[in-house]
Design a protein around this nucleic acid. Structure first.
Lengths: 116, 116
DNA sequence: TGTTGTGTTGAAGAAGTCTTCAACGAGGGA
DNA sequence: TCCCTCGTTGAAGACTTCTTCAACACAACA
């Protein structure tokens, strides 16, 4: 496994970080975990996906170190690795929303221009 | 071309957004453009890469709509599409730095545990 | 012990992204 | 016009990542 803490240019670490986030299921998992630790069963109930698919994506997050898993009896509970993560998800949500709104406005302008 | 403004679940829009960011060259371009508009020539001078490779990545950013290109005489000048972007890059830098520092501390703990 | 419920893993093929190369277009002189 | 510079494009092969399936590990319980 390639370490995520290797001495690597910062811009490459950033690219890897964003790539780790770049999957719909992983995004949803992180946002759900912002509410607090959750057993796999609950994640599975909220995200419509096969258990093994979810597990694959949880594996990516675990390997990156952004979440941790703890076995509790017969179930496994996932948790965000640190408080930064939830701040990150909030920032991402805000920024993307602004960007999407901006794009929508731009699109509206273009369509208005089309019809004239 | 698949529109980036389509009616798509938000978590998928987010995933696409992060995928758009998930490349070292694209990160560097965006950070350079935070300083202001720049001709391709300048980007090329700062990022060691072939012209056609840079152009491919600029194409990705342009298609997504996060940067705009304007021809000025014989050169082409790139610019961030909006002020949000530069805020985004600052947020990403801050958050990732915190995450990396956290990982480094964790690693240090693990290594200390190893040697005991 | 056998059986069931919960999650994880490995592997194979599909699908997507990166890199690189040659070819191209647009602008600005000689 | 010819030529040169600047930047872009399209396409092919290398390389990653995704999805899916069957097999597995572990705990709980009869």
């Amino acid at each position: 496994m390639k370490s995520t803490v290797a001495q690597v240019p910062l811009y490459q670490a950033k690219a890897e970080f964003f790539r780790m986030l770049a999957h719909p299921v992983r995004i949803r998992v992180l946002e759900l975990l912002c509410e607090g630790p959750k057993p796999v069963r609950d994640l599975l109930a909220e995200i419509e996906i096969e258990a093994s698919s979810l597990s694959q994506q949880l594996g990516v997050l675990r390997r990156y170190g952004i979440v941790t898993a703890i076995r509790e009896g017969s179930t496994v509970v996932y948790e965000l690795a640190g408080p930064d993560v939830s701040e990150l998800m909030r920032a991402a949500r805000r920024i993307l929303t602004e960007l999407l709104v901006g794009q929508r406005e731009l699109l509206a302008e273009l369509q208005a221009a089309d019809s004239s």
